[in-house]
Every structure is written in structure tokens, then in C-alpha cells.
């Protein structure tokens, strides 16, 4: 009799999220992701998640009996994401340190609400808002957004932004090569600013160098998605830090633990930072101090650098 009651209680409480395990999946030979996992674990513990509920699985090996369907899988990086999608079809999954395009493609057909992703992308809306701020006092409000031809995500986001009238957008989807870049002379000539969102084909490698060179030749400021661009010649970058991604991931896990589900918006853009190349800014007649001062205002800061999310 007693045994029956105990079994009933176990079934009742075992189904509660608070008793489910959280598996942090880290691919092998990735010291950086291992460090990020430890950081996320620390953040989660600081939010009241018990130590025995957390486990870091290095090397992407699933338990012999498989993951319990109540367990939450936290996948760090694209390899872990693929592993989690493969071995946790019944599980809730949080993806972190992944690109938006990748995760959208990878979760194609997966049940809405069964996953959420902390992406490293900067939302084009954020960059647009920043360009709007920078060009507020300028007569030329034309912004050039070049991206690779196959980047459907960016094409879609630009299309959405085109509805706004604050800025005049010149959107060019091109085959990413030097010849096509060199042909953008008219666009560079017309534009007052260039936005450089995450695009692994155009805004990367020698193509990125060419674009930076072109922009500088036409005295155009570039607002980029990564700190690396400010070192390479971009005037300004909005970027994420590991700590911010870790905090955002921990918050998302805590939300799941509380509600056993994710919010409607599955794509999360963590709060960003701003970096200005002062020398480039002054060379292009912008005032870095003024920009920093404007972004200290809570409204602007929240609008441009604040956390954003988007539905699948």
C-alpha cells in the first residue's frame, strides 16, 4: 500500500520541471566552450538552480539510456546544437552561441515552443536604429546594406525594414566576389553609411577587407556586427560578450524551469555592447564622445543595445 503511494508521488513530482535535469552539452576539444559552460553553470546556480540538477556533458556523448524526455538540453555551439537536435527529439532544447540562420535552418519543422536560441547575430533592427541615431543630424540618410545573394534571413530583415521611412535603404544582394564589390561604386557614392550585419560570405575574409576599403575610400562609416571590424577599419560595432550570452542563457533556462516552456519568441538577441574606433570616427567627422553620451540615455540604450527577441 505504502509502495503504491510512493510510486504515485514519484510520478506526480517527477513530472515537475524543478526535478528535471539540465544537461549542458559541450563539444570535445573546445576549451572556449568548456569555459563558457562553466560560466553558464555559475550563472544558473546564482539564479537558484540546484547543483545536482546540472550536468556538463563534454564530448557530446548521450547517456546509454538516452536523455529523459523531461530533461533540458543546453547546447553550446553548432556541433552541440546538431547533437541535441539528433538525440533530444523529445526534449526541450536551449541553443546558445549559434548563428540565427543556422538555427533557423536546423530547427526547421521542430515543434514551436520546444526550443529557444541565444544567437550571436545582431538584429538588423538594432543596427538600423543605431544608423538612425548617427544620421539624425545629417541630410544624407541613405544607408547601404550589402549582403550575399543567398542570405535569405538578411534579405527578409531588410525587406521588413524597408517599410520604415526614417532612413533610405540601398540593399544589394550580390555574389560575394571582388568584382561585384568593386562594382558597388555608385552605391558607395550615394550612401552616407554602410551596415555590416553577420554574413559569412560577403562580410568575411577578403570580401570584408574590400568592403571596408571601399567604404573608407568613399569616407563612409561602417556599423558592423563584430568588434573585429572596428580593428579592421569600421567606425563602430555592436557586439556581444561571452558574459552577456552566458547570463542570457541562464535567464532563459530559469524561465523554462519556472514555466516548463519558452516564450513565444524563440530567437533571443542578448543585450549588446558598443565599441567605437575613435580615430576612424573623428576622421569621418563623427564625435565618439557624443555617440557614447547619447547611448547612455536609457531610452536610446534600450532601443539600440537592449535585449531583443523574435519569433521563429
Amino acid at each position: 500500500m505504502t509502495a503504491r503511494y510512493l510510486l504515485l508521488l514519484a510520478l506526480l513530482f517527477g513530472s515537475l520541471p524543478g526535478f528535471a535535469d539540465i544537461h549542458i552539452l559541450v563539444p570535445e576539444q573546445s576549451k572556449s566552450l568548456e569555459a563558457a559552460a562553466e560560466q553558464i553553470k555559475t550563472e544558473m546556480r546564482s539564479r537558484g538552480i540546484a547543483e545536482d540538477e546540472l550536468s556538463i556533458r563534454y564530448g557530446l556523448q548521450a547517456p546509454a539510456e538516452g536523455f529523459d524526455k523531461t530533461d533540458l538540453l543546453l547546447a553550446l555551439g553548432p556541433k552541440a546544437a546538431n547533437f541535441a537536435l539528433q538525440h533530444g527529439q523529445q526534449n526541450k532544447i536551449v541553443f546558445s552561441f549559434v548563428e540565427e540562420a543556422f538555427i533557423r535552418e536546423a530547427t526547421e519543422g521542430r515543434k514551436v515552443g520546444s526550443w529557444a536560441a541565444i544567437v550571436i547575430n545582431q538584429p538588423l533592427q538594432r543596427m538600423y536604429a543605431l544608423a538612425e541615431l548617427l544620421l539624425a543630424e545629417r541630410s544624407n540618410k541613405t544607408v547601404l546594406i550589402p549582403n550575399s545573394l543567398n542570405n535569405a534571413l538578411l534579405n527578409k530583415q531588410v525587406e521588413e525594414l524597408s517599410q520604415n521611412e526614417a532612413l533610405q535603404l540601398i540593399h544589394r544582394s550580390i555574389e560575394p566576389n571582388a568584382r561585384n564589390i568593386s562594382r558597388l561604386e555608385d552605391e558607395f557614392y550615394q550612401a552616407a553609411m554602410v551596415l555590416a550585419p553577420l554574413d559569412n560570405e560577403l562580410w568575411r575574409g577578403k570580401n570584408a577587407r574590400l568592403l571596408l576599403h571601399q567604404a573608407y575610400s568613399y569616407q563612409l562609416p561602417i556599423v558592423a556586427h563584430s568588434r573585429a571590424f572596428t580593428k579592421a577599419g569600421a567606425m563602430l560595432a555592436v557586439y556581444l560578450s561571452k558574459e552577456q550570452v552566458a547570463k542570457e542563457t541562464a535567464d532563459l533556462v530559469k524561465t523554462w524551469q519556472a514555466a516548463d516552456s519558452f516564450a513565444q519568441d524563440a530567437i533571443v538577441y542578448p543585450e549588446a555592447n558598443l565599441e567605437i574606433n575613435d580615430n576612424i570616427a573623428r576622421a569621418l567627422r563623427y564625435k565618439p564622445e557624443l555617440i557614447r553620451q547619447q547611448l547612455q540615455q536609457p531610452e536610446q540604450k534600450q532601443k539600440i543595445l537592449g535585449r531583443q527577441s523574435r519569433a521563429r
Binding site: 572556449s32 555551439g77 553548432p78 548563428e99 575574409g205 577578403k206 573585429a228 550570452v245
Partner: peptide, 22 residues
């Protein structure tokens, strides 16, 4: 050389690799 714009720390965690110099 064709120097790449190196990916930042977070981009590297997301699997964005640095291109080889040419």
C-alpha cells in the same frame, strides 16, 4: 596577402572560423 577580418570571440564560439591568408 588577402587578410581576413578575424572573427571576434563570440563569433568563434559560434563556429565562425578564420579564413586562411592568400
Amino acid at each position: 596577402y588577402s587578410k581576413d577580418v578575424s572573427p571576434d570571440e563570440v563569433s568563434a564560439l559560434a563556429g565562425i572560423e578564420e579564413d586562411q591568408e592568400e
